[in-house]
Amino acid sequence: MLSTDLRDNVLVVRVEEKRIDASKAPAFKDEMTRCIDAGQNQIVLDMSQVDFIDSSGLGALVSCLKRLGPRGSLAVAGATGAVSRLFTLTRMDRVFALHPNVDTAVEQLSA
């Protein structure tokens, strides 16, 4: 469900699913955890293909952030519609840096 690409020492993780819901959240969390445990600590999550996320998906994202710890960064790129709406509603937009696209997110993290 994820594809990865290393750019300027930032790992760009693209979600290849349209929905991150309770049925997909455990696999999403496992795949992200593998990236984090492999030593990546600057991560941009490209959510431009995602058009729905529920609280289970969001919870999985928070769990990844905790795994990454205070020294790492997890930025979100390309969240629109119902996805960006959930970040705002839950006030998780204070927790995750939201960027309009991958380029600006990578620029920010690699600076």
Binding site: D54, S55, S56, L58, G59, A60, V62, S63, L65, K66, G69, P70, L89, T90, R91, M92, R94, V95
Partner: peptide, 18 residues
Amino acid sequence: RFDFDETDLDGIPEGGMG
């Protein structure tokens, strides 16, 4: 539920939001 302290990483909710 969403009135959490974003600077306290451990306290950010992962569930109980539905």
